[in-house]
């Protein structure tokens, strides 16, 4: 069952096209990683999902309800943490947490204390004294304490230290185990890789790739490290081989998934002493699209 459904979503700000037909589906109980460079349209998409921005075209629904018309109904069942959390300087963190949880109609006391302790946040301080990370913790504690069905995180860990990032990941995992759905927009690809079931990459207002990590990997290159008896001549010329690095007899390169078979045949002629293969990291995937973008933009001088 899909919790979030986005079909052919468009958004214009004056002449600027922020979204050009975004499609997105989140199934119940999955963690969806939403990645893309700054200005690609992640936050715009999320704000349309929240009913704060009105779509110029297309359809967006959560729990089967329209995100613009039924915003209030939807919001009773979701929690949102923005990347840049702005709070009221003269309220304390504790007051803001109670406010957010109270507005959602949840019961704060139960999980609140545990979260405050795990995130090491002092709730009696005024928000004006909090650093960016601490403001993010306020929003995260409020989100996890309200126990919603859907979490929307927009770069929630950009101000957190690695220890707190770990705590965040544990709570996201816990939410998933409890059958919650999570939309996680993030820059930290290792985090997405660790947590997410499926990933969507957005670029210039379009989803250019989406699927499970293994599906995405299948589409792309594998990293290979080979040591051969004889030197392989002109390895860079072989079809499907990229980014060749040389270290004596050892070569490292990337191979397009569909050329893997022919490349291995070719290489094996030279007597393989050692062969290591590694799946591409999400960063490789991401960078490949990003490089591709630069190629198309600059006429291919990569």
């Amino acid at each position: 069952m899909s919790v979030v459904e986005v079909r052919n979503l468009y958004k214009k700000f004056g002449k600027f096209h922020a979204l050009n037909g975004v499609d997105l589906t989140l199934n119940q109980g999955e963690i969806y990683g939403f990645i893309g460079p700054n200005g690609a349209g992640k936050s715009t998409t999320i704000r349309i999902l929240l009913g704060i921005l009105k779509a110029s075209g297309g359809r967006a629904s959560i729990f089967g309800k329209d995100t613009w018309k039924d915003a209030v109904e939807i919001h009773k069942r979701l929690a949102y943490v923005p990347g840049d959390v702005n709070l009221w300087p003269n309220l304390t963190g504790g007051e803001v947490i109670d406010l957010f949880v109270g507005l959602r109609g949840g019961d704060t006391k139960r999980k609140r204390e545990e979260l405050l302790e795990r995130f090491a946040l002092d709730p009696s301080k005024k928000c004006r004294t909090y650093s960016k990370g601490n403001r993010q913790k306020v929003a995260l504690v409020a989100a996890f304490a309200s126990d919603p069905e859907l979490f929307i995180f927009d770069e929630p860990t950009s101000g957190l230290d690695p220890l707190m990032e770990q705590v965040f990941q544990e709570y996201v995992q816990e939410a998933k185990d409890a059958g919650k759905t999570v939309l996680l927009s993030s820059h930290i690809l290792s985090e997405v890789e660790k947590l997410c079931d499926r990933v969507g990459i957005i670029r210039q207002g379009e989803i250019i790739e989406s699927g499970t990590l293994s599906e995405l990997r299948h589409l792309t290159r594998t990293n290979l490290l080979v040591e051969t008896k004889k030197l392989i001549p002109l390895i860079g010329e072989v079809k499907g081989i990229h980014n060749v690095g040389e270290d004596g007899q050892t070569l490292s390169f990337q191979v397009d998934a569909e050329e893997l078979d022919s490349v291995i045949r070719h290489v094996s002629q030279y007597g393989i002493l050692k062969l290591e293969s590694a799946p591409p990291t999400l960063e490789d995937l991401f960078m490949r699209h990003y490089e591709h973008k630069q190629e198309t933009n600059t006429g291919g001088n990569s």
Binding site: R47, L50, G51, I52, A71, V72, E73, I74, H75, K76, L78, A79, Y80, P82, D84, V85, N86, L87, W88, F100, L103, R104, G105, A139, I152
Partner: peptide, 14 residues
């Protein structure tokens, strides 16, 4: 302007 209404509107407040 201070980006604080989004936090309220993201809660079930019309």
């Amino acid at each position: 302007k201070k980006n604080r209404t989004e936090s309220i509107l993201a809660a079930p407040v019309s």
